[in-house]
């Protein structure tokens, strides 16, 4: 038999609260540093694009937030699955807290995408395959959050939205493929963005830094939200009372 105590300790809210406090002490400055480096490099130092000029710089916000919004959905669904299978309280907390962050990042990707669309396509909104599937991802997030809110029994709400998140996970790749196919049916692509591989290294470096920064940002906000949620749901326990009085 393998030693599973670490796994069960992971499920204890008190343990997580103490550990995450220590993690945040170095994670916050590190994330701020990486984000500032990436932003200054991407927005000020990197050369403008030959075709799109300075408008290409929004790429450094748009693409990382789009990537993260998708990753956050998978993280949310995996946390939900862990919660359903091992009945781990902390996993449901992680799922509940990552939903609004993911939704906000999806909204950010949509907004920056449409701002970027104005100089490149000439309109704020184009029914492009990627924008459309992002929009549907946003609706999926809204569904998960709304279902969670609708239950008066918080535990049942968490379980129900975990099932929905898992169903959504099966659907996301299909939605992306469907949007792609639908796009070619109605409007053959006349303009294609540069592929990742053809990006000049001078543009690619700040991009990778921004992705790392966004992951860091996601982790920081997720931990902060989870800590809040834990304090609230455990507010009647001894250790939270001691914490509130002691500090």
């Amino acid at each position: 038999m393998a030693n599973w105590t670490w796994f069960h300790r992971l499920g204890s809210p008190k343990w997580f609260y103490e550990k995450s406090g220590r993690w945040l002490r170095w994670l916050v400055p590190l994330t701020v540093l990486v984000l500032i480096t990436g932003l200054v490099w991407g927005l000020a130092i990197a050369p403008p694009d030959a075709k799109q000029g300075h408008s290409v710089r929004i790429f450094y916000i748009h693409v990382p937030s789009a990537m993260l919004s998708l990753a956050a959905f998978y993280l949310m669904a995996s946390a939900g699955a862990v919660g359903l299978i091992w009945r781990m309280k902390l996993a449901f907390v992680a799922m509940k807290c990552s939903a609004p962050i993911g939704a906000a990042l999806t909204a950010l990707a949509l907004i920056t995408g449409s701002i970027w669309g104005k100089p490149t396509w000439g309109t704020y909104w184009e029914w492009d395959a990627k924008l459309t599937s992002m929009l549907i991802l946003f609706f999926l997030y809204l569904g998960v959050m709304a279902l969670q809110e609708a239950y008066s029994d918080k535990q049942a709400g968490a379980k129900a939205s975990a099932v929905l998140a898992l169903v959504g996970t099966v659907n996301i790749p299909i939605i992306y493929k469907a949007a792609d196919w639908w796009n070619t049916l109605h409007q053959p692509a006349t303009f294609k963005f540069t592929e990742e591989s053809s990006i000049d290294p001078s543009l690619a470096w700040p991009f990778w830094i921004m992705i790392v920064g966004f992951y860091g940002f996601f982790a920081v906000v997720l931990f902060l939200r989870m800590r809040n949620e834990i304090l609230y749901s455990e507010r009647r326990t001894q250790w939270v009372r001691a914490l509130v009085k002691g500090e």
Binding site: I136, F139, L147, A150, L164, G168, N171, I175, A178, W181
Partner: peptide, 17 residues
């Protein structure tokens, strides 16, 4: 209403094809 909010995004691929 919640049902339609939850299910409609999942219907999208079937509708498209």
């Amino acid at each position: 209403l919640l049902l339609s909010l939850v299910v409609t995004p999942l219907y999208m691929p079937v509708l498209v094809f």
